[in-house]
Amino acid sequence: MNTTYRPDIQGLRAIAFLLVFFFHLNKDWLPGGFLGVDLFFVISGFLMTMITLNDIEKNRFTFINFYIKRIKRIIPAYYVMLLFAAFAGAYLWQYSEIKVLRESIISAGLFISNLIFSRGNNYFGAQTSENPVHHTWSLSIEMQFYIFLPFIIYFFRKHPCKSFYNK
């Protein structure tokens, strides 16, 4: 199993980025541009599965190493962004909305902001789309995926479904 550089995957990432970018510039330019997020999820799932299978195949996979790699790659920059968003939001938001900001930052820091933001807007407060950490919902989903992915791969690698092989 080869996990080297894949120009085809990089091309798909570029397409996904452009879809999301143009959608955020103006929804009317590319109404379906939000599908770029789905494409990012598929690419991430594919790459993480291939990397994990490669590590299992080479007998170098451990659950601890899997999670340490994810933490080292994501947490530092993510928490710096959350800190910046907290200071900027505290300065720019009205005092009455700081509770919503605090809840948003904490849920983003715990990678559960997708659950908080799925509740929708607060009638009396700032709109969800105005939240400085609203974009963290997608990384929350990805991190939740990372919690289960190695267990699923490891289990099915050790106990493959016989129905797939008996056709």
Rank of each mutant, 00 (worst) to 15 (best):
N114D: 10
Y95E: 10
S129C: 04
G45W: 03
A86N: 01
I51Y: 11
L101I: 04
E97W: 04
G36M: 02
N59H: 12
G36F: 00
G125L: 08
S104E: 01
L101C: 05
R13I: 11
I9L: 10
S113K: 05
V80E: 00
I68C: 06
R70W: 07
I9Y: 01
G45I: 04
F84V: 15
F111W: 09
Y95P: 00
R73L: 06
F21I: 09
F22G: 08
F41Q: 14
L83M: 14
S129H: 12
F41M: 10
R60Q: 13
I112C: 11
G89S: 02
I56W: 13
Q127N: 11
H24W: 00
I98E: 04
H24N: 03
Q10A: 12
T49S: 12
N54F: 08
A108L: 06
D55Q: 11
Y79I: 03
A16L: 09
A16Q: 09
I9Q: 04
R102S: 05
I75E: 13
S96K: 12
F66W: 09
I56A: 09
A90T: 14
L92H: 07
S96N: 05
S129P: 02
G33M: 02
E103H: 08
L25P: 00
Y91C: 04
Q127I: 02
H24G: 07
I112L: 14
F61I: 06
A88S: 08
I15A: 14
M50C: 12
L82K: 05
R13G: 10
I74C: 03
R119K: 14
L47F: 06
R102H: 03
N114T: 03
F23A: 09
F41D: 09
L18P: 12
I74K: 05
I64E: 11
